[in-house]
């Protein structure tokens, strides 16, 4: 659905996006993470054909962003960084205006508008001008606009920024439901918890380059090293030797607990448990220590100037 090959963009002598390779299939959500000015919005704007790539190629919904720009724009729903609303209009007029632009027949427009207003809890606001809306309502309206023509590709720039928790939850659920409708979605966000919750794949962009990409699990493994596990014992260890198999490295030790790392958890962890139980250790709990996307992100960004870790596939 979205394929880019060495996509790059220069602004005069500044390289804003540098050889970005992305591949998002139908039904997938890619979270594009990166610090401010990293190139997220520029990438999205190239995918919406508003910016012309300096080099490389990009195909959206099967269309080339340079030669089939109008078809690309028809196939894409965009939630822009700025809401792009007309303050003097009413919500029904606004959505109807964009419905006409997207060539939707009147009846379909009406049905779709009602559905989206209901979905985003905006039905009560139809009699107020858009200028009187709160930030969260404006964000929801922008999202409704981007979904109006049921596009197969969605590009969402900061979809839940400025929203209260309840509205943000509503929008996140909406995005999840869109994924199940076989849409390809790119979400640009600073909200790492949101990315973790929504995305099938994550790409971290820094200074215009994709510095890390893959599934959350792959990134954790690649950036933070082997998984780390916690074992809680029933009694104090009292300096007793632990009969651990080779390949297990203890990273921290307490009076009645240990943390260890292992490269092949599927094979080694059952052995660890078996050895300990056989040796008479009373194991209460074994669990993987949760490593947040934040640690993955910070590790990637800190490492960025030194090496490019991976390209998105």
């Amino acid at each position: 659905m979205i394929v880019t090959n060495n996509l790059s963009k220069n602004f005069k002598d500044v390289r804003a996006v540098d050889q970005v390779n992305l591949h998002v299939r139908a039904g997938e959500v890619l979270a594009l993470l990166g610090p401010n000015g990293a190139g997220k919005t520029t990438t999205v704007r190239m995918l919406t054909t508003v910016l012309r790539p300096s080099s490389g190629t990009a195909h959206v919904a099967g269309y080339d962003v340079i030669t089939d720009a109008v078809k690309v724009r028809s196939a894409v729903g965009v939630l822009t960084e700025e809401h792009g609303l007309y303050d003097r209009m009413y919500i029904l007029e606004y959505l109807d205006f964009f419905g006409q632009i997207y060539d939707m027949p009147a009846e379909e427009r009406e049905g779709r508008i009602q559905y989206l207003l209901d979905k985003f809890d905006l039905l009560d606001a139809v009699n107020r001008r858009i200028g009187q809306y709160s930030k969260g309502m404006r964000q929801k309206l922008s999202l409704a606009r981007s979904l109006l023509h049921s596009p197969p590709v969605l590009l969402l720039d900061e979809p839940t920024s400025a929203m209260d928790p309840a509205s943000a939850r509503l929008v996140r659920n909406a995005i999840k439901s869109l994924r199940s409708e076989d849409r390809a979605i790119i979400v640009c966000t600073h909200n790492l918890a949101e990315a973790e919750e929504l995305a099938d794949k994550i790409a971290i962009i820094c200074s215009g380059k994709i510095i890390a990409s893959g599934t959350y699990e792959e990134l954790k493994q690649r950036l933070l090293g082997p998984g780390e596990y916690h074992i809680q014992f029933a009694e104090n260890l009292d300096n007793r030797d632990l009969p651990l198999p080779s390949g297990v490295e203890i990273t921290e030790k307490g009076t009645d607990w240990i943390h260890y790392q292992v490269t092949e958890p599927k094979e080694i962890n059952p052995l660890v448990l078996q050895n300990l139980v056989t040796a008479g250790f009373a194991v209460v709990r074994v669990e993987e220590i949760k490593r947040s996307l934040e640690s993955v992100y910070l590790q990637a960004v800190n490492q960025a100037p030194l090496e490019e870790i991976n390209h998105v596939d």
Binding site: T48, T49, I101
Partner: peptide, 8 residues
């Protein structure tokens, strides 16, 4: 921007 991103 939404206008520029539309199929017009």
């Amino acid at each position: 921007e939404p206008l520029l991103s539309s199929p017009l």
